[in-house]
């Protein structure tokens, strides 16, 4: 175990890479996934602005994104990644497939959350002369906020899990670290240490997410 001094800084780097990839991807996912979830909700046949065709199309794209195994998506979106980042290798490049993979995931969760807001509250806002965008802004999103926070938490945890595969495109991170230093060098202790570290990160995230969601809930 004397080589821990050598390994430790690399573990630290790997943790930093994971946090970087997941952090930026989570931010982008929230920025794009929530609007997509709103769009899925309002264009539904019984929604605020029914657009059955658009809704079915969006549903199809979202399902496609969710059905594809992440490792396949990683390879499939390589041209897109090159277009945006300039390369397909490295942590920054891994953010693109991570974000593309997580957006449909979050969008569906957002859709479910928004659907659970009672139709009567929407009707009440419309009776006050609210525009559709007012309904989204002042009723749907605020009323669903605790549930949205829970959805974002689940998505970030899923992102951590996806990010373990980023090693396949040279993205580094904890998953990659566990494979290279633990699995491939028959160092079960390193694999185990990485898993424990991931578990701690996920636990902390989930705990913080739950607390936040609870503090927002007044129902």
């Amino acid at each position: 175990m004397s080589d821990w001094n050598r390994i430790y800084p690399q573990l630290l780097d790997a943790t930093g890479e994971t946090l970087y990839m997941v952090g930026i991807a989570a931010l982008l996912t929230v920025l794009l996934g929530i609007p997509l979830g709103v769009l899925l909700t309002v264009t539904a046949p019984a929604g605020l602005a029914p657009r059955p065709l658009l809704n079915r199309l969006l549903g199809l794209v979202v399902n496609l994104g969710r059905a594809l195994p992440f490792i396949i998506l990683l390879v499939l979106v390589a041209p897109v990644t090159r277009g945006i980042v300039g390369t397909t290798i490295g942590s920054t490049a891994a953010i693109v497939p991570l974000t593309i993979g997580a957006i449909p995931f979050l969008a569906r969760l957002v859709e479910t959350s928004l659907r659970e807001v009672a139709g009567g509250k929407v009707e009440a806002a419309l009776s006050m002369g609210a525009r559709r965008r007012d309904v989204v802004r002042t009723v749907l999103l605020p009323e669903a906020l605790p549930s949205l926070v829970a959805g974002v938490t689940v998505t970030v945890v899923a992102l951590i899990s996806y990010s373990a595969m980023a090693g396949a495109v040279g993205g580094g991170g904890l998953g990659d670290f566990a494979i290279r230093f633990g699995y491939q060098q028959f160092r079960t202790d390193i694999t185990l240490a990485t898993v424990v570290l991931l578990l701690v990160v996920v636990q902390a995230l989930q705990w913080a997410g739950d607390r936040w969601a609870r503090s927002l809930s007044h129902a």
Partner: peptide
């Protein structure tokens, strides 16, 4: 609609 107020059976207040 702004000049027509409405009250509902289940109140429909915003919990937030």
């Amino acid at each position: 609609r702004r000049s027509i107020g409405m009250v509902f059976q289940h109140f429909e207040l915003l919990d937030s």
